[in-house]
Write a protein that binds this DNA or RNA. Structure first.
Length: 521
RNA sequence: GCUCCCGUAGUCUAGUCCGGUCAAGGAUUCGGCGCCUUCGACGCCGCGACGUGGGUUCAAAUCCCGCCGGGAGCACCA
């Protein structure tokens, strides 16, 4: 369980002093309704908490970002604080580029998730705010300009051996730094590095890069800046300047805490404490941003809400509510443990919310025509409840025989047997599958409800053709009962024995087939 | 390899800070039964866990030490 994990001993004792002793700051925690435990934010003052949500704009938000969103939103609510949406759009790299379209898409994702930021900022507007801090670090002797090739730099870091540049005096560094800012170097020719300790036991912490040069065109600020800060440095600056009171991030970013603190200590400024959560993986969700981007662009995926992306949009499209996702995610608490959970748990959470209010409809996949000989004349239609356990959801009238469609799988599984057409009559299927193309001829046997295998059916008259977009991007064709034709986009239905589906937003009502997206069992 | 983090049922989680109320609670899965949704929704019932070895103690999931296992970081990405 996370408590004051992110806080170094030195800082901790400092805090205890300010608070008047250990009792005052003993970490305690609260539980959400879902069962997750969230520790108190250290020294949080109700109404004064400022959090920041910092996505990198190179993709839409997916299920994994849900934790980022909902944990921040949880603490905002708990402390009546504010959330800054800060697009972390420093220049990135050739492989990981800032892309213009995602600014709006991500804002839309936040909206969708119900996490409305109190302010929206852009790192690309704050580049110049970084430079004075860089200068202060250099003047303190905390950094040097390194002109080694990236490979050499990496090797030296691994071996713990210094490069000659490390001997620079602050004024030499300042000159080199000014030259960087004045376009004296090309990309990759010089970086500003923090001077830590090359003997630091953690190789990851040795003389990290603070600024580098990039010629990439930025969608918001173009080529106005060439010297861009790295994430750690920019946050060391902005967490302080933006008045962030608590930093919440995934534990893959713990070393960044140390970097920020190192810089604050060097400059003698105070910064906010850090809290972390562990890695969350949803087993079924193979989240690969770059692949998703490629496939959306190539048209192989059906937009940013293709189910294969596991984007928040795709979950919404499938009829999985953001409230269900929120409950699912908050149930994990702020644990540092790495978790891998099955999507089934999320589905269960969603079912709790929609089952009681979702109407049932008959759907038959891979339909084969079946004629029932001797079918009773008075059963041209029947009235069925919209929900087996919820009479308040009403009834609907459904066309019936004598001409039906049954699922091929059902027919083949019961050849020669007597079966019950659910809620209707009993029939005997022929012993063998007749020639393809012609209708199967079944014989009416009786009407009473007997203990027979029950088959889903759809009347031939009024059958509606339906296309189900599956989780793997696959399409299943089939026929549904007539009432499905009058569904509206975004309606959620349960196709009995198939699962919950949502009528696709992109479907124009009245056209055939009815397009639905599969949600979950 | 180095650094950090984490180990409660198949999975997720509560309990661990402050040892006894924990013969370990909840959710989900799974199994059985019920049901005019068949394995598939729903309802009822049930199985199932403190990684391991040692230590401290009247008493250990909880404290201490070793071991084992899992994850992350070691980018001029974020």
């Amino acid at each position: 369980m996370a408590t004051l994990e992110g806080v170094p001993p030195s800082e901790l004792s400092d805090r205890l002093d300010r608070l008047g002793g250990p009792e005052a700051s003993r970490p305690s925690a609260s539980r959400t309704e879902e069962g997750g435990v969230f520790p108190d934010l250290p020294n949080a003052v109700d109404g004064k908490v400022v959090l920041r949500l910092a996505p990198f704009p190179n993709g839409v938000l997916h299920i994994g970002h849900g934790r980022l969103l909902f944990v921040h939103d949880y603490y905002r609510t708990r402390y009546h604080g504010k959330i800054l949406l800060v697009f972390d759009d420093t220049i990135g790299s050739a492989e990981k580029r800032v892309e213009a379209e995602f600014f709006d898409l991500i804002r839309g994702d936040c909206e969708l998730a119900g996490v409305r930021p109190d302010a929206i900022l852009y790192k690309s507007d704050r580049v110049e705010a970084q430079y004075p801090w860089a200068r202060r670090v250099i003047e303190k002797g905390g950094a040097y300009v390194c002109r080694c090739p990236a490979d050499t730099l990496r090797e030296n870091r691994a071996k713990g051996s210094p490069c000659p540049e490390r001997m620079q005096t602050p004024s030499e560094t300042l000159d080199a730094w000014e030259r960087m800012l004045a376009n004296g170097y090309g990309p990759g020719e010089a970086v500003l590095r923090l001077r830590t300790d090359l003997a630091d036991p953690d190789p990851a912490f040795r003389d990290r890069v603070l600024f580098r040069i990039s010629d990439l065109d930025h969608p918001r600020v173009g080529r106005r800046y060439r010297v861009w800060p790295m994430l750690e440095f920019s946050w060391a600056v902005d967490d302080v300047e933006l008045g962030v009171t608590h930093v919440l991030r995934g534990k893959e970013l713990v070393i960044e805490d140390r970097m920020e603190r190192y810089i604050w200590d060097l400059l003698g400024v105070a910064g906010p404490p850090f809290l972390h959560w562990g890695l969350l993986r949803v087993r079924e969700a193979k989240v690969a941003k770059s692949k998703a981007n490629r496939e959306v662009r190539s048209g192989l995926y059906d937009g940013w809400s293709d189910p294969r992306t596991w984007s928040l949009r795709s979950l919404d499209r499938r009829g999985i509510s953001m409230e269900a996702l929120r409950a699912f995610i908050l149930s994990f608490g702020l644990s540092l443990a790495d978790i891998e959970v099955a999507a089934e748990t999320l589905y269960a959470e969603n079912r709790k919310r929609i089952d009681a209010t979702t109407v049932r409809r008959a759907f038959v996949a891979d339909p084969v025509p079946v004629e029932v000989e001797g079918y009773p004349f008075d059963l041209a239609s029947v009235t069925l409840p919209n929900h087996p356990d919820r009479p308040e959801l009403g009834n609907r009238s459904v066309r019936a025989g004598p001409s039906f469609y049954l699922a091929r799988k059902d027919v083949l599984g019961h050849l020669g047997e007597e079966v019950r057409l659910k809620d209707l009559v009993n029939v005997r299927l022929p012993p063998a599958d007749p020639a393809p193309g012609s209708a199967i001829r079944a014989g009416f046997t009786s009407r009473e409800n007997r203990k027979l295998p029950r088959l889903q059916w759809v009347a031939r008259e009024g059958a509606v053709s339906v296309d189900i977009l599956g989780i793997e991007g696959d399409h299943a064709e089939g026929l549904a009962e007539r009432s499905v034709a009058s569904a509206r986009p975004r309606d959620i239905l349960q196709f009995e024995r198939v699962g919950f589906v949502r009528v696709d937003d992109g479907w124009s009502a009245g056209t055939s087939p009815v397009r639905v997206v599969y949600g979950h069992p």
